[in-house]
Design a protein around this nucleic acid. Structure first.
Lengths: 193, 193
DNA sequence: TCTCAATTAGACTGATCAATCTATTTACAA
DNA sequence: TTGTAAATAGATTGATCAGTCTAATTGAGA
């Protein structure tokens, strides 16, 4: 027990550094130092930095969707309220940490050149997973009448996540809470039937 | 006339490369080679890469807002139709180039670590300029009744731009046209009174 | 035409990058 | 306890990075 430097610990460090400072802006030395492991261990765990990056993306994806599913499957609230509650919690979290965290998928997908990279593909796969989780909740809400049917479930899901991602972009650019509040307001409008 | 290698030419090259492949992922050598100038000229024009990056951001900001103003001040359409027309043209443009371009502000703001960078500040300033341009149009539409007043002008503007930025993120991640279409549909819903 | 400062060319520098390599330690099975 | 493979340490490597430096070229004013 108490395995000090497991692979997951390094992935967590990578996730945090990449979210804070970007992928290319974070060197392997910083990762090694922060995680407290040696270069030998790192390259024993991961083929190269891109492989590490892809595994960090998946780690982030699983870490996020696990938490989201927990909230989006909570039958004590109707689907619309579940969504609003989830985003409220997310916004709270960003605020608590002074808006320093970005979304890893957003950051890396923009940073990585599009052709020929493992990372681009990994970003899209994880985005699609996000969409699936939210879409299920929205479909449920559209069926029981608690969510607007003005746009089909997938379109509404993508619009909603796009607006959320964009709000995070503005937040991290220095606008802090304002875009999150605007999103919060518009979210309610777009979900309400 | 026909000044081959003006400062603006280099800025344009930087804008394109940064939009395609990101800031840290684009080396000065690639910029020099693409623009066809020497290292000496580059460092005669720009103090360092960050200074170049900041000027590229401003170049992109002016280049964009000039075009947006042209469409958003076109009195032949009502404000709501102006906005929809503008985004339709933007979407058309991205499609024409196979969705390879991202938004420079989105990309760079996520890529650059937040503390102590000229670039972060430059991103926010340019975002604020974008917001001002759109907000004026939305205010006009809210006054003449062609745009929804469910959210105040600034909040609605930020929501709209957030959703657009987020759609571009998803587009560049490999989802191509789908997020743009979802945005297009939701845009109409959120603007209509 | 001459002068001199501004611009440009491109070799060069030191720092830093991802990645490799060898030696050593650890963990575990026999 | 011993044998062996996996895991780890960390010095090292070559490539590439941003940025500097000196020499050559250009262009405008006298």
């Amino acid at each position: 027990m108490n395995v000090k430097h497991s692979k997951d610990d390094v992935l967590k460090v990578g996730m945090e550094l990449f979210r804070l400072n970007g992928y290319h802006n974070t060197g392997t030395n910083e990762i090694l130092k922060t995680a407290g492991i040696s270069r030998g261990s790192f390259y024993n765990f991961f083929k190269d930095k891109d492989d590490f990056g892809a595994q960090v993306l998946d780690y982030y994806g699983v870490w996020s969707t696990d938490y989201m599913k927990e909230l989006l499957l909570d039958k004590r609230l109707n689907p619309r309220k579940r969504l609003i509650h989830l985003f409220d919690i997310f916004v709270q979290g960003y605020k608590r940490d002074n808006f320093k965290w970005g979304c890893l998928l957003v950051g890396m997908s923009q940073e990585v050149g599009q052709i020929n990279s493992v990372l681009t593909h990994s970003c899209m796969t994880n985005f699609e997973n996000f969409i699936d989780v939210f879409q299920a909740c929205i479909e449920e809400g559209q069926k029981d009448g608690t969510i607007s049917t003005m746009q089909d479930a997938r379109g509404l899901t993508i619009s909603m996540l796009a607006m959320y991602n964009g709000a995070l972009v503005l937040m991290k650019s220095g606008m802090l809470e304002e875009p999150l509040l605007a999103f919060r307001k518009q979210l309610e409008l777009m979900l309400t039937p």
